[in-house]
Each structure stands twice: as structure tokens, then as C-alpha cells.
């Protein structure tokens, strides 16, 4: 049996990748299952999905905590979460990155494969949706599956949700990625702290279960505590404000769903990139076109 964990962002297609991989394994005569982690995730937030493959019937129905392989669809996630958490000995990480495996720091020395899936997807599909390309890299790096089954799996799963032509384009992206994958070993220089949870006992709970703003070992909790949640890593495009063109109409300040455009006195605006998710409403609504969206 082998188990795979996919790390992606909501809307990137980690779940579809998990399903296509399961389908490909099934076509090769295995039993397979694929499922996402069900949470309150929104588009852009870090998400996980799982695939489990075995020669025999699979009786386990749990999430995968100790995967044999981890697949990362967005290399910015490498800096945010410990993707090798629970990875089995002799396991492997497959990462969407333009870098070489030796230049990637996962905090643990594991065999690593890299592929510039974003570049391939932009070339072949025209959008930075990398779930098909990364599967090609998975087939090459692990050698578990034939690339033709992967292609078939992608066409099967993708044509259920979109048109067949696009599904075939996705299969082509996987084939290109298969040839370009680099396998090596990553470095291990940084350490990841385990994320702490706030789990108070009933005695520690404030009266009436109302939670005032307070500092705990898991950070700030209670009203206004989301301020510690930096959502800036979600974005692909970044707004750049041209102060000379700005007439202080404040439309961007008003419309920003994140509230990340700050008013400095009555004359200047400042964009707080810690929280900006790069939706582009500010650039779209600016009457003087003073805001431009550029790729990160």
C-alpha cells in the first residue's frame, strides 16, 4: 500500500489531482481511494487531499497522517507549513518549483523531486492551475505508475467536470512534466515549530463561555484575533500603487474586502501586503488607473 498527501490551495485542484491519481492506479488493477480534507477552507487557503492505493481491498477510512509521498502544488506552502510532517522513512516529496531539489529546504533530508509545473501549465493551459502537470512529475519521480495511465486518469476525471478538449490539454501538460522532472535530495536547515492549539479546560474557560480577547500559547484568541492570521501568502498578483496618479478618492480603501489599504493622514494611501489576497478589486475600481496588478 502507498499513501499520498497533496498540499495545495483552495481552487488549485488538489482534490482533482488526488482523484485522477486514484483513477490512474485503478486502471492499473489496484484498489484506490481519494478524498479531500473537509474543513472551512476558502479559495486560496492551504488545503490537503489524499490518495490511498493498495493491491488488496482497502478497509481503512481515516485521513492519511503518515504518507509515503507528499505532493506540493504551490511552492510558497513550503515556507508556511511543515509538509514533511509524518512522512515515512524513505518517503519522497514532489514539489512544484522552478528550483533544483538541492535548493529547497524542507527541514528534513528527504528525497525530493521538483518540476516547474506553473511554467508548464501557463504554456499549455494558459492558467497557473498545476494539478495535472504535477501528476506527470509524480509518475516520473516515483516510478509507481505508467505515464499513460496518468494521462488516462486525468482525461477520465477532468472530462467529468469540464470539456474533453481541456481534459486532453491537461493530460499533455502531465506528459511534458514527466520529461522535465528533476530528482534529488533537499536540504534541511530550518526547523518547523509544531502549530499549537488552544485547548482550555472547563475551569480555564471564561464565564458563560464568552471569550474576551486574550493572549494564549496558541496566540491571540477572541474578538479581533484574526489580525494575527497573515493572509498575504494567498496571492498570485500584487497591487502596486502609483502615488503620483492617486487622487485620494478612497474607492480602493472603501472596496478592499481585506481592509488592507491604510490611510496615512489625509494625503497618502499605503497597501499592507501582509493581508492583501490579490483579488484586484482596487485596480479594477481605480478611476485613475493608479493601481496595477503585477505577478509576484
Amino acid at each position: 500500500m502507498y499513501e499520498v498527501r497533496f498540499h495545495g490551495r483552495g481552487g488549485q485542484g488538489a482534490r482533482m489531482a488526488a482523484e485522477a491519481l486514484a483513477d490512474a492506479a485503478f486502471l492499473e488493477g489496484n484498489y484506490a481511494m481519494a478524498f479531500p480534507f473537509f474543513g472551512a477552507e476558502r479559495r486560496g487557503a492551504p488545503v490537503v487531499a489524499f490518495t490511498r492505493v493498495d493491491k488488496q481491498k482497502i478497509r481503512i477510512r481515516t485521513q492519511i497522517y503518515e504518507p509515503d509521498y507528499v505532493v506540493v502544488l504551490d511552492d510558497k506552502l513550503v515556507d508556511l507549513i511543515n509538509i514533511t510532517e509524518g512522512l515515512k522513512k524513505g518517503g519522497m516529496a514532489i514539489i512544484n518549483s522552478a528550483k533544483k531539489p538541492e535548493d529547497i529546504d524542507l527541514g528534513k533530508k528527504v528525497s525530493t523531486a521538483t518540476i516547474d509545473a506553473t511554467g508548464i501549465s501557463l504554456d499549455v493551459l494558459g492558467v497557473p492551475i498545476t494539478n495535472s502537470a504535477i501528476l506527470g512529475a509524480f509518475a516520473k519521480a516515483t516510478g509507481l505508475l505508467d505515464i499513460d495511465s496518468i494521462k488516462k486518469g486525468i482525461v477520465d476525471m477532468f472530462s467529468m467536470r469540464m470539456d474533453k478538449k481541456l481534459a486532453e490539454k491537461n493530460a499533455r501538460a502531465a506528459a511534458i512534466a514527466y520529461d522535465k522532472t528533476i530528482v534529488g535530495t533537499c536540504k534541511a536547515q530550518r526547523t518547523f515549530e509544531k502549530r499549537k492549539m488552544w485547548l482550555p479546560t472547563y475551569k480555564e474557560m471564561p464565564l458563560g463561555l464568552a471569550t474576551p480577547p486574550m493572549k494564549t500559547e496558541a496566540g491571540l484568541v477572541g474578538p479581533g484575533s484574526f489580525i494575527e492570521n497573515k493572509t498575504g501568502s494567498w496571492r498570485t498578483f500584487k497591487p502596486i500603487l502609483d502615488h503620483e496618479k492617486c487622487i485620494m478618492c478612497l474607492f480602493c480603501w472603501f472596496y478592499c474586502p481585506e481592509g488592507c489599504i491604510e490611510r496615512v493622514g489625509n494625503t497618502t494611501l499605503k497597501i499592507n501586503y501582509d493581508y492583501c489576497k490579490g483579488c484586484g478589486i482596487c485596480a479594477n475600481e481605480c478611476p485613475k488607473n493608479a493601481i496595477e496588478m503585477v505577478r509576484e
Binding site: 486560496g44 493572509t231 474586502p257 490579490g278
Partner: peptide
């Protein structure tokens, strides 16, 4: 506050 987890452009 900023830092809420809505989809971009909500």
C-alpha cells in the same frame, strides 16, 4: 479586522 479567511474578492 484584516486576516479573515474569505475568498479573494468577497
Amino acid at each position: 479586522t484584516s486576516g479573515h479567511t474569505a475568498c479573494p474578492g468577497c
